[in-house]
Design a protein around this nucleic acid. Structure first.
Lengths: 308, 308
DNA sequence: TAAAAATACTCCATAGGTATTTTAT
DNA sequence: ATAAAATACCTATGGAGTATTTTTA
């Protein structure tokens, strides 16, 4: 009993004629006869009474029609659903993003994406860069957006945009209005930083290493799991930190947090990347999302920090 | 996209392996590869990522699985339902019966039948013999039980039991206690009869014709569409009638209606028949019902009128 | 006589297999 | 080195057709 036979049976049932059904299906009448015969043989019971001019279903045929009709309808639904999936009209895109991309870069982009693909549900999971890469490598999410990259033949990175890292401190610290500070002056000052999995933390450590410093030389008073928590700690006077300018936009504008240049580090640039698993094929909607995202961030709209 | 391919896909999806799926399905691994390739080709999208040791579904594969799984389950349900239908564990049997069989013969049998086949729903439609034959010929019902037969190559009759026709009159008529009456004495007496489609009426007319009489020689005061209506009319003193002994059982026992022998007609025997359409195939349950009914009525249990 | 389905037949696509190669762990 | 899937190749079933016969209204 396969769908082809059932569909032929359905047509004969509805047309009450082998030849009409053949015509409707674009088949020859003997072919239709063959399918019906095969079905009848497989069930061991006649399904249709051939009455000369007309053909009428037997009770068994009646029963089979009633029970198999929903399955045939379902077949159509499945094919149509797959079509919609391939046409990006239906589906789901799971993204893992680290805090800065997840909270400051992607949100404004997702609105635009939703306009273009309203049938797609986005599931955005926000953690830190290390967790993002882990999820992508494990294949739990199709697409990652992170603030750090590693060399891993299972992962393929693509730079989408960049940002500055800035030194942020409470406006109430004595050196808040200095033209620039030297890191050596800050060794004793209380420092709050992100956890080791954070892209911001990784970039920061790398930059420090370049100029011969290490994090544990500093007076680390807190290690917090989110950028928002860092900012609140700074405002509360817990300590200073180095954060993405993107995350500091509104506080810098309102003057609630001071942004001070660092003497040893002129250009504290850091990049953000999309990351996909090289071993896994990408869904149509993921391809499209990536194209739109790179087009948007590379060519069209620079990120707000550049605009200022 | 047919069920075979989908089922193979389902197995690979669940086993996360082509070779495990092949084993589970009793197929060779290349055959499984072939089915998957065909499916992927038909949708134009990869469904499974072959990752060396393991195989994991793509998003499209995930989507297809979720959407097609119910259809595969439904296939099993359809096959199982057909099996139950053929095993007489599920289904419906439509019967048309005329008044005497429908009201006095079948009811006591249906209980027994239901014991044996509790999954079968019986739909018993009661009308007169002519209507029964019409329904069977039209194929609207599979089985008829009637009190009259005709010659019709579309219909096949089988005698199942017989009954006596008796003269019934109100106990208040002057001749209620006569040892026997002659029909010529009743020509002026008010007569109530069934409609022309009734088997009782047909048999009665045939018997009258045999002894040289016709219904319209009598004083017909009413033509009623049911045996119960006839009996009520007799009790109300509207007139006399000729009815099946089966229908008169309780009234005769309680003495509410008088049963008087007719001089000219010693043995007013009439038969009941099952009738099926020769052009239509019979369902398994109909076959079984017929077998049980004939076994019951022919051999085993004579109808109550004989028992008395 | 005409319409409908069955039968007889031919053809080719494909589901099935086995043996082997390629790929990735 | 090994396990897994792909590839190559062969066979046979069966789905498709055309031509014709049988059946029945």
């Amino acid at each position: 009993m396969d769908l082809k036979q059932l569909n032929v049976f359905r047509c004969v049932y509805e047309e009450r004629s082998f030849s009409k059904a053949a015509e409707r299906l674009g088949l020859s009448q003997p072919t239709v006869s063959g399918h019906i015969k095969a079905l009848e043989l497989s069930f061991g019971v006649p399904l249709l009474d051939r009455l000369g001019r007309k053909t009428l279903p037997t009770r068994a045929g009646e029963f089979l029609y009633r029970h198999s009709r929903p399955m045939l309808d379902m077949r159509r639904v499945v094919v149509e659903s797959m079509g919609r999936f391939l046409d990006r009209l239906e589906g789901e895109l799971q993204i893992a993003a680290s805090t800065i991309p997840g909270e400051y870069i992607l949100p404004r982009f997702l609105g635009e994406f939703h306009q273009s693909y309203p049938g797609i549900r986005i599931r955005l999971e926000i953690s830190d860069s290390r967790a993002v890469l882990r999820e992508v490598r494990a294949g739990h999410v199709e697409l990652g957006v992170a603030g750090a990259r590693v060399t891993d033949r299972d992962l393929e990175f693509q730079t989408i945009t960049s940002d500055r890292l800035v030194l942020a401190a409470s406006t109430s610290v004595s050196w808040a209005n200095a033209a620039a500070v030297s890191l050596v002056d800050l060794l004793k000052e209380p420092l709050v930083i992100r956890e080791p999995g954070s892209g911001t933390r990784m970039v920061m450590e790398r930059k420090l290493a370049e100029i011969g410093h290490r994090v544990d030389e500093f007076n680390v008073v807190a290690e917090l799991g989110s950028t928002t928590a860092i900012k609140e700690a700074i405002k509360a006077g817990v300590g200073w930190s180095i954060v993405s300018a993107l995350a500091l936009e509104s506080e810098a504008a309102r003057g609630t947090i001071a942004e001070i240049p660092i003497r040893e580090l002129e250009h504290l640039e850091r990049s953000f990347y999309t990351v996909v698993n090289t071993r896994r094929s990408r869904s149509p909607i993921c391809e499209t999302f990536l194209e739109m995202l790179t087009a948007e961030l590379a060519a069209g709209a620079p990120v707000p920090s550049d605009q200022k």
